[in-house]
């Protein structure tokens, strides 16, 4: 890629940062060029972020309907899913799935709650509550 073709699209996903792209000058010599973003990349990132946010919002609605535990909302809100949450807590996926049920979640031991709280970077109180609709 020629350095004049390095995209400078001011992507919102870069939040004002710049990334290095290797590109060639008029003589074909490579140099490091700073890019403020590329629209194509931004689109793909935003699509992934929106997918995660949508999952969190869906979970939040289920929590308010009493169909799911606050844990599900916090899991998606911290950009995790069931396999990942199982991995970071060292629990089995079936255990995590079970803990997403409101009836099971309210009876969780302090140590289990602490484990989830640590993995999600929250306090236990924060873990047990969700934002109001």
């Amino acid at each position: 890629m020629n350095k004049n073709d390095v995209p400078q699209d001011n992507s919102r996903t870069y939040s004002g940062h710049r990334k290095v792209i290797y590109a060639t000058d008029e003589k074909g010599s490579y140099e490091r060029v700073e890019s403020s973003g590329w629209e194509a990349e931004e689109f793909a990132t935003v699509m992934a972020v929106e997918q995660l946010e949508e999952q969190a919002q869906d979970a939040l609605a289920r929590v308010h309907q009493g169909l799911s535990a606050p844990l599900e909302y916090h899991m998606y809100n911290k950009r995790l899913d069931i396999p990942q949450l199982a991995q970071v807590t060292g629990l089995f996926q079936w255990q995590v799935k079970r803990h997403l049920k409101p009836t099971v979640f309210t009876k969780l031991s302090h140590s289990k709650l602490q484990r989830y709280a640590d993995a999600l970077g929250l306090s236990i109180t924060a873990l047990q509550s969700v934002p109001v609709p």
Partner: peptide
């Protein structure tokens, strides 16, 4: 579309990616 977007994201963003590494 999510799958295609994922390929692009793996390519262009996470750890520089496909084209970026070819240029390096």
């Amino acid at each position: 579309k999510l799958y295609l977007g994922h390929i692009v994201r793996m390519q262009e963003e996470i750890g520089t990616g496909g084209a970026g590494f070819r240029f390096i």
